[in-house]
Nucleic acid binder design. Structure first.
Length: 894
DNA sequence: GTTGTCACG
DNA sequence: ACGTACGTGACAACG
């Protein structure tokens, strides 16, 4: 007999909620989305499936608030206390969980979960002899569904303690048979559903009556054989009893379409990305193991992919379209090792272990007729170059990683995620499970296993290719992918390859000098604090600093006893040590992150080769790592010294081009705010002019630096989705003053409030925010009942289109400059992008030509963007202004 | 692995 | 009553 589990989703989720809400507080993600009930639900359900060995699992939910039962009884369920606020958003999230794990769930307008489950149980009983049913619910009404083949699993105490009810167990507990459960309910009523039953008849009397007369109808047929008060009560309650029975009766004749049962196969990668998304990290390992157990029974049935192992490539196997995947486990591919390669085409599936010294393979890569479609092209190309395998870059025509990012920037870039971005039946094991991770990472696994895994990865790229392209087109995002993101891969690839030269002497000099300063400063601080601290006091330990300042020295603090810069600045005049601590922070940051910390990133060529992550941010920006060259100090004079270690080559100089106020210009354009557009058109200082508007000053009047500073805070605030609280905090003014300022600001730029409201409305309706180029970001926060989270959603809806459109513009500029450099056969090259700034190394003899190409392309990039995505360039009226500076090192720039 | 802090746009 | 500006990455300390 195969067992099918039917789950009452609402009932289980409620139970999961209360089992995991302690003293009213519940588990939440860092952005405040409550997840406790889903966490517990996922835990309970997977545990149950893995332990009790079910063949298939279906979950049913109540659909709408109103059901056919409400038509019969006006106050049905009216007495029930309100659903906890933190639970409401989790009804949606739990459905997302089931989808990601590939567990099917059902809901139907007008019906409750009971009816769906009852119907399914009946269908199984009458059509499928080889199945039996278990129903997981804490609703005792469901006992009416018990038969020889159907049993109820009732949670007892806690979450893991369950009791199984069949006919016999029911008879022992209630002394009734399943078909009389509704009669019992009709007589007793049920306060939770606001069912009255017969007044004065409780459990004991009801059971006694049913034992004798079997059903409610039976009781009334022989009402005269019952005497006295009870008869009176029954006659008075007749209508109610019959109605309550009717309502308690589960409708087992709901129409359910496409119901079929097959061996359950959980989607591990979908599940893992779900758990990552909602920060349920601790469940990943536990659930992965269970999924392994649950899926195991099926493993032998999964179709094997046929493939051929080749010692050397045979170019006669090559075709026009070849899906390739190169396996390499290092996160930093600049020092990555190639473990093997899969090539899939219509001639078959091929696996190559050794890529070195394979002349045929190199011919394959150099031949432009042979298209290569892959996942993470930048990594692939870098690995090939590191192995000195020549290739024609142009023959790479598709990158599944970047395409998937365009469809959903929120998804972690792992090849396994391609499966859930488009629905497929494919399954791909996690890297960690194949190779282990951390200290247990093992690259030398069995040859066969590794070959299959690599082939499977290429298979995923192949199978998802057409659906992904179709979805891009359907979303109107194909141009963004094809003409911006895809060409950008090559730009970033070359930037990373070129790297940035490091002045090692300068680095060593500064490292020693800074270490010296730190030691001196620590000695000085120890002298001041003599008697207050131990000899081995650690000035870098927030814990020890906290104790010293607030407990020992008794300085005032906030509730959290924070010791960050903002907190320390407040108490700087109360003790001489505080200023020195701030100085210490600056020096140690400089030393450990930008000086000594940089050494490990320097390669044999004396350069750093950063990784520009193209598929990480939610807004479309790039990020940079190992090392991060987008956050090198610039604001503090002392820390800015670190910029001297980045030097240009012998024959080149650095040129930096940065956009002036690009986000505000984007805002002016997209919000159609003419006053703002005019300010930029007249090349005025936007903060000064905003100050004139807010403070109602005349055109040529003097604007104080204080007024300009306030206006500047506003200009930034508007991009972040300003709040009165945030502003009052930043400007150190009262919330009332902040409110008034906001009013003045919006009066000065009235279109901005309209635009803001449109953005929020669109994001709420669509479920995502979008840039001018149709880059999307899902904003589930907007659906939250919690107003803090919802406000966060509002700010995302406003900020993402602005920050993201600016990012889109930068990308267009980079792609176009790169193309021009190639066409003009220039040697000069791009070295870095820092969100609103692009840094180049330019050969002296190319200076004029290069500067011209760069500034022209940057200035027209918004219009170019418009054209690329098929909009009208003429609608872009705001000017983009670019400032350039040069230097032989980064310190000299700007 | 998580937390606190701080660097950038 | 609650308690925030948007987007990142790296480091040291501390469980």
């Amino acid at each position: 007999m195969k067992k099918i589990l039917l789950v009452d989703g609402n009932s289980l989720l409620f139970r999961a909620y209360y089992a995991s809400a302690y003293a009213g507080s519940v588990l939440k993600t860092s952005s405040g989305i409550p997840t406790n009930a889903v966490y517990s639900f996922a835990n309970m359900l997977t545990s149950l499936i893995s332990e009790r060995d079910y063949f298939d699992v279906k979950v049913a939910f109540d659909k709408s608030k109103k059901t056919f039962r409400h038509d019969k009884l006006e106050n049905y369920k009216a007495g029930r206390s309100a659903t906890p606020e933190d639970l409401i958003p989790q009804f949606q999230i739990v459905r997302e969980f089931l989808d990601s794990a590939n567990i099917s769930w059902w809901e139907k307008e007008n019906y409750e979960a009971d009816d769906l489950i009852g119907t399914m149980a009946k269908i199984i009983e009458s059509n499928c002899e080889e199945y039996e049913v278990e129903i997981l619910t804490s609703d005792k009404d469901m006992f009416q569904l018990i038969t020889d083949k159907t049993k109820i699993l009732l949670p007892k105490t806690g979450t893991s303690n369950l009791e199984l009810f069949g006919k016999e167990e029911l008879l022992i507990k209630w002394e009734v048979s399943p078909e009389n459960v509704v009669d019992l309910k009709g007589l007793m009523g049920d306060p939770s559903d606001n069912l009255k039953g017969v007044e004065g008849v409780g459990e004991k009397t009801a059971i006694k009556l049913l034992k004798e007369f079997k059903t409610i109808e039976g009781i009334y047929e022989q009402i005269n054989s019952i005497g006295g008060k009870l008869q009176e009560k029954l006659i008075n309650g007749k209508e109610s009893a019959i109605l309550c029975k009717e309502i308690a009766t589960i409708n087992c004749e709901v129409e359910i379409e496409n119901l079929n049962f097959e061996s359950i196969k959980l989607n591990l990668s979908g599940l893992v990305s779900f758990l990552e998304k909602y920060e349920m990290i601790s469940l990943i390992k536990r659930l992965s193991n269970r999924v392994g157990l649950i899926n195991k029974t099926e493993e032998s049935n999964t179709k094997k992919i046929d493939f051929k192992v080749l010692n050397e490539w045979d170019n006669s196997l090559a075709l026009n379209d070849n899906f390739i995947y190169i396996e390499s486990l290092e996160e930093n591919y600049h020092k990555g090792e190639i473990l093997g390669m899969a090539i899939l085409n219509e001639n078959g599936n091929f696996y190559l272990e050794n890529l070195k010294d394979d002349a045929e393979l190199e011919k394959f890569f150099l031949n432009k007729k042979f298209n290569k479609l892959t996942y993470d092209l930048k990594r692939t190309a870098t690995l090939l170059r590191n192995y000195e395998i020549d290739f024609a870059y142009d023959s790479f025509t598709y990158d599944a990683m970047v395409a998937a990012y365009v469809l959903n920037p929120n998804i972690t870039s792992r090849i396994q995620n391609l499966i859930n971005i488009v629905q497929t039946d494919l399954f791909l094991e996690e890297d960690e499970i194949i190779y282990g991770k951390g200290a247990k990472l093992n690259k030398g696994i069995e040859f066969e296993k590794k070959a299959i895994f690599t082939i499977e990865k290429a298979q995923i790229i192949k199978e998802t290719f057409v659906p992904i392209i179709e979805q891009l087109k359907q979303n109107n995002q194909f141009n963004l992918y094809q003409n911006i993101e895809f060409p950008l891969i090559e730009v970033l690839f070359e930037m990373e390859e070129k790297g940035i030269l490091i002045d090692k002497l300068e680095l060593d000099k500064q490292t020693a000098r800074t270490l010296n300063k730190i030691e001196e400063l620590e000695a000085k601080m120890k002298l001041i604090l003599a008697g207050d601290i131990e000899e081995n006091f650690n000035f870098s330990s927030p814990k020890q600093i906290k104790e010293l300042l607030f407990d020992q020295l008794g300085l005032p603090s906030n509730k959290k006893q924070s010791t960050d810069r903002e907190a320390l600045e407040k108490i700087i005049y109360l003790h001489p040590i505080v200023a020195l601590l701030l100085e210490h922070r600056k020096l140690t940051k400089l030393y450990s992150t930008y000086l000594r910390g940089f050494e490990k990133f320097i390669f044999a060529d004396n350069k750093v080769h950063t990784i520009f992550n193209q598929t990480l941010t939610n807004t479309g920006r790039l990020s940079s790592s190992e090392p991060n060259i987008q956050n090198i100090s610039v604001k503090d004079e002392l820390q800015k010294e670190a910029r001297k270690i980045f030097i240009s080559g012998n024959q080149t100089k650095f040129y930096s081009f940065d956009y002036s106020q690009i986000e505000l210009r984007v805002l002016a354009q997209l919000g159609q705010e003419d006053t703002l557009i005019e300010i930029f058109k007249n090349k005025r200082d936007v903060h000064t002019e905003a100050a004139r508007k807010i403070f109602d000053l005349t055109v040529d009047s003097e604007v104080s630096s204080e007024q300009r500073r306030i206006a500047k805070v506003f200009n930034f605030g508007i991009i972040y989705g300003l709040s009165d609280f945030g502003l009052s905090n930043d400007l150190k003014i009262s919330i009332i003053e902040a409110k008034n300022f906001i009013k003045d600001y919006y009066n000065s730029f009235p279109k901005l409030i309209t635009y803001k409201n449109i953005l929020i409305k669109e994001a709420s309706e669509n479920g995502y925010a979008a840039t001018y180029a149709n880059r999307r970001r899902l904003v589930p926060e907007l659906a939250s009942a919690n107003f803090l989270i919802k406000n966060f959603g509002n700010r995302i809806a406003v900020n993402m289109p602005i920050q993201g459109t600016a990012a889109d513009i930068l990308k267009v500029a980079m792609v176009n400059i790169y193309k021009s450099f190639v066409i003009e056969n220039m040697k000069s090259f791009m070295v870095a992008q820092i969100h609103d700034e692009i840094i180049f190394e330019i050969y002296d003899e190319e200076t004029e030509k290069a500067l011209n190409i760069i500034s022209k392309n940057m200035e027209k990039a918004f219009k170019d963007l418009s054209k690329i995505i098929g909009k009208k360039p003429s609608e872009i009226v705001v000017e983009l202004e670019v400032n350039a500076s040069k230097g032989e090192n980064w310190f000299e720039l700007k």
